[in-house]
Design a protein around this nucleic acid. Structure first.
Lengths: 208, 208
DNA sequence: GTCTATATACAGATAGAC
DNA sequence: GTCTATCTGTATATAGAC
């Protein structure tokens, strides 16, 4: 019998299992899978290596379970965005993306790393993929609404424009990793410029 | 005495050393440092593990040396770009970036991975950093020329506009890693849209 | 320079007592 | 459920012959 069977879970074991999971998620995110031996997780979680393997059967399985925990905050909550005018919807979405990335620095870096290396379980990749799709869709819809409502030019290509915004946001995220210490232009300045130029271009009469 | 001393290099040893280096660079780029044991490099380069360590003293040092080789193609050759009109300069620079990324897929992925994980020697990070700075500068100059020559609006902010282009390109690169199989919009389409919208926005009268 | 054989270290995983 | 002790594999690195 092992802990992965249905009928385990004495109150004590659950708390311990949870502590292992949380610790593992933290360490994997911070230092990566290969640089985090089970002995390290064991020390930080204050249990023995053997106990970890009793709960999870293998390091690989612990990793998968911990990933689930890491991904928990990866949801999109747009609130009552539908009631805003199109331009503000777009700005809000950009701000949401930025805020998320800033709040979850460590784990974003980790997830990006998984994507770049094409490693990690498929569920994770598809989860992230879905999130991107959803985000892009929200932007597309906002642009369409603006166009149909007469605030944006009729010639816009909502899908491409949305994709380009996502792309630029990814790039800003990326450059946070590249430059680290000395960013050539501050993120905030660049984000404002992105918003400004995007909206200028979408609007019927660019005021400038 | 070791191979890292000044006075080694019999003809035979140099060729072997070189083969080890090339093999290591290839394998590290493809599978990463941690997933490439010396035994694997030894097998592919058709030498013994011991010989590798005779030449390089440690795996770490082999890695640093191999990185140098990996970075060799990382240079910017713009040709006679100066003679082109501003708009075409920008398009050309975008194409150069794209072409490079497509040609050096494996190693780009590897270098990006190093940057994301903040690992790898500082020389590498600063080399990449410099390249980005140079590329951004070329774009900035092109935009300034266009502005001063009267083709672009006088209100443009060359530095920010250049940064935004680089950012978008990074994002496109990034999404190649994220989506892999099923890109929501093709790279080419997105690149064309980037060029088009950027230039439309920069130009005095946007023709659309 | 290049090899074979070996030392050393540490990882993940198991056995079995409590 | 949780532990200590141990097994087993594999990695880097060294010793020493050729």
């Amino acid at each position: 019998m092992s802990a992965t069977d249905v009928n385990q879970a004495s109150p004590q074991g659950v708390r311990t299992r949870d502590r292992i999971l949380t610790t593992a998620a933290r360490l994997f995110s911070k230092q990566g899978y290969e640089h985090t031996p089970l002995s390290h997780v064991a020390r930080e979680a204050e249990v023995s290596k053997a106990l970890i393997l009793w709960h999870f059967d293998s390091k690989e399985e612990l990793f998968r379970a911990a990933l689930g925990r890491t991904l928990e905050p990866y949801v999109i909550d747009v609130g009552d965005i539908g009631s805003l005018p199109a331009a503000e919807q777009i700005e809000k979405l950009i701000d949401l993306y930025t805020k998320f990335v800033r709040t979850h620095g460590y784990s974003v870096r980790f997830i990006v790393d998984l994507m770049v290396r094409s490693s990690g379980p498929d569920e994770v990749r598809s989860h992230v993929h879905e999130l991107y799709g959803l985000f892009r869709e929200l932007l597309t819809t906002a642009i369409e609404r603006g166009r149909d409502g007469g605030q944006f030019r009729s010639e816009t290509r909502p899908d491409l424009d949305a994709a380009l915004i996502v792309t630029a946001l990814d790039g800003i995220l990326m450059e946070r990793f590249l430059d680290e210490k000395e960013p050539p232009t501050s993120d905030d300045e660049l984000l404002e410029h992105l918003k400004k130029t995007t909206l200028d271009r979408l609007r019927k009469s660019s005021p400038l």
